[in-house]
Amino acid sequence: MYVVACIKQVPDTTQVQIDPVTNTLVREGIPFIVNPYDTHALEESLRLRDRFGVRVAALSMGPPNAEATLRKACSLGVDDAILLSDRVFGGADTLATSRVLSAAITNLAKKDEIGIVFCGKQTIDGDTAQVGPGIATRLGYAQLTLVDRIEDLDLDKKTIRVRRKLEGRYEIVEAPLPVMITVVRELNRPRYPTVPMRLAAQKANIEVWNNETLKLNEQEIGLKGSPTWVSKIFSPERDKGEIIGDGTNDPTGTAALLVDKLLDKDLLTL
């Protein structure tokens, strides 16, 4: 049985700035990282492998340099690392992306049945949280989003019970396999690669699947298959702050002043 982890290479957003003239992300010289939520998806896949002996495949759609993301996955111990890369996949929105990933998972299912597809709850660059549910919809899988704990997995009965972390409450739900799960950070603590695994990962075989492999209709993928168009990206203006009181010479008075301000703006009520 396959457990699939969908991972994405994203720019390290703490280092991303927006070009004020063109309103686009300045990506030059910005290092890429594995989308942090996806590292938890990957970790959970590996834990299920450790416990149940399932096979773990890491899938990533992206340009050729996204290979680095898959090498990282290899250094953590995935069995298969597959890069979905083709010019016609480029410029995809979440719908087109989920079509390519779904096709890849269907292709993978030719080798062995799919049990679980793990995705991070969202990426830190797009923040849509749509690709995971998109995959579930395309494949007709049950979708369990925002999962912070796997309560039970029964491979004989092919059911899974998970806890979903919702605002102010938890929800425990059960679904039949195969299932698509999006995960939150609380689910686990990702492992750290050993040096021998890192070195092996540098030479690991990364399969590349392009559209010759997936044979998707070019009108439904990439830029052409994306109904979403980004018209503008901009940083919201930030109002100038103010210095209140004289903290050095009158800390007590300044603190009182601060509390008054916060009360005025109604920021201290719960």
């Binding site: 390290d12 703490t14 280092q15 290092p31 990702p190 750290y192 050993t194």
Partner: peptide, 28 residues
Amino acid sequence: QMEARFPEELLNLFENMEQRSNPWGIAP
């Protein structure tokens, strides 16, 4: 290096060092 076993608070340090080359993970 062989077992990736260490006190858990070091995971952030190691990743910050690798990704942003400083202990706190602040943007270079």
